[in-house]
Amino acid sequence: MFYIKLILAFFKTSTQSELAYRSNFFIRLLNSFLNLLTGVLSLVVIFNQVETLQGWDMPSALALLGIYLLLGALRELFIGPSLESVTGMDGEIWTGTFDFTLLRPVDKQFLLSFRHWRIFALFDLLLALVVLGAAMGLLGSDLSFGAVLSFILMLLAGLVLLYAALLAFSALVFWNSGFLFTWIINDLFQLARYPVSLYPNWLRLILTWIIPVGLMTTIPAQALIGTLSPWMTALTLLFSLSSLFAASILLQHGLRKYTSASS
């Protein structure tokens, strides 16, 4: 209960400070639309040339795009800004103000993950849901109740995987504070726009087992169109939970290594 209250308080203060920048709102709106436009137009261009791409047709690729936008919006809503404010450029680790964060009587991982919110990302979330809804409409009669249920489960697993990857990369900053590790994972996340099976073998292996951005969107999309086997479902759940566990351990180790930056 205490943590829910804290999240609400964080959300409120973040929103108040962001609403002070009103013209930013329109810029954000423009960027959200551009993001959506390029995503959808890319699919239009690709599927103008081919009917299917290794088993993926336009509706299923659109569903995957919706999942990609949804995860991106959730990252943008709180995970990204919260982690960035500590480990990013001019973050608390660089400036040394992380000391004050550490002194607070709250779980550190919680503080690192939920402190800053970007209310404008809710609009991205809405656009993502529209895309997902349109894709489900196109898939239409192929959707079964079980598929939707398994889709929601795998979407959560994808979110956990994304969170674990961002947390782990952020934790690396305790070993090398000058390097922007979160940028790498943000860059690589772009590869999750398309099904991982479209990439060459060597890249597919990396994106599945080492930096699992491929799994985050491909697996939920497969669950939705009903091509995901039950044992892959179980394996993904296991993999996402163990990634979360491993990332938390890495962060604990990192926190112990932390020494303040200023005098």
């Binding site: 690709i46 290794q54 860059d187």
Partner: peptide, 18 residues
């Protein structure tokens, strides 16, 4: 530079698959 390179690689792989 790595970040600017990636989107182009994505579409190289997509069209190669096509």
């Amino acid at each position: 530079a790595f970040g600017w390179m990636l989107p182009l690689l994505v579409y190289l792989f997509i069209w190669s698959a096509a």
